[in-house]
Design a protein around this nucleic acid. Structure first.
Lengths: 146, 146
DNA sequence: CCTTGACCCGAAGTGCACTCCAGGTTGTTA
DNA sequence: TAACAACCTGGAGTGCACTTCGGGTCAAGG
């Protein structure tokens, strides 16, 4: 008979992390008060699932573990720490926006190169010195590049 | 009297990396044939600057060093490896696009939380159980959350 | 009861991308 | 020519986020 709790293996699957990572997060103070069976085995609730998913979202956007711990602690403190949590998330929001800008720039560079490569491969390079093997715009190494 | 070359310190500044990182990249096979003075000190060219900026762009979008090395090697091989380079960059392009999607999702989550926190702080929470201290949508920890 | 697989724990190990160190050389400036 | 910063090298060290290990415990099926 199944109940409302998830085993470690089920939890890991639900959050797309390893069981080890779950234990690691707990050790690091990111998770607290995980329910246990009488025998001491963990029983994760749906709240735990939601929380770990939030953590994974923060990690996926490069928030360091120690900052996630700070956030977890603020959540533990309740409403009193709401302003601090807002602050932390606002800072992180800015970092996310910065990352998007970096990715956008990179995408432009990569697309530019892909276009140039494709043109050369198709035998129709767009640049003036078309037939030559030296083309600085092609890969940023200029003189020796192809 | 200045010439067309940059000293290691100037190069580091021009590429926003440390001198150590420049040497590390060279050791790792990402840079080749850096010019030297008669005394053995490095002299970076503007081509080197452009190339390192490309490398930094790839790193900033999470390309591993070993893949950057593979790319550098393909560039060394010249036109013969153009198709392979195109392949590598196309793969990386996909990863960049995936990262953008992840950031976009994260931004939604963070914005949602920021909005919820702001509403509570302003005393005008949008949710039905407005006056209570338990609000699952606020931080993903439901029961114990504020 | 017995096996077997999932689970428990603290601690050690891993891979990555740098970063720092020690001891010596170069090169510019006073 | 003396001082001093910037440079050179190989190698060791760092911080991060996990991941693996070893030895023991728990729980469900046969």
């Amino acid at each position: 008979m199944t109940n409302e709790f998830l085993t470690p293996a089920e939890m890991a699957a639900a959050c797309s992390v390893s069981v080890d990572t779950l234990r690691y997060y707990e050790r690091e103070g990111l998770l607290d008060d995980i329910a246990r069976t009488s025998g001491g085995q963990r029983q994760y609730s749906s709240n735990d699932v939601a929380w770990v998913q939030v953590l994974r979202c923060l990690r996926a956007t490069a928030m360091p573990i120690r900052e996630m711990r700070a956030f977890a602690e603020l959540v533990r403190e309740g409403e009193a720490a709401l302003a601090d949590r807002l602050d932390l998330l606002a800072n992180h929001r800015k970092r996310i926006v910065d990352q998007v800008a970096v990715l956008h720039d990179a995408l432009e560079l990569v697309d530019h190169k892909i276009e140039a490569y494709t043109a050369v491969l198709a035998g129709t390079p767009k640049v003036e010195n078309a037939g030559q093997t030296r083309n600085p715009t092609l890969d940023g190494k200029g003189i020796r590049a192809s």
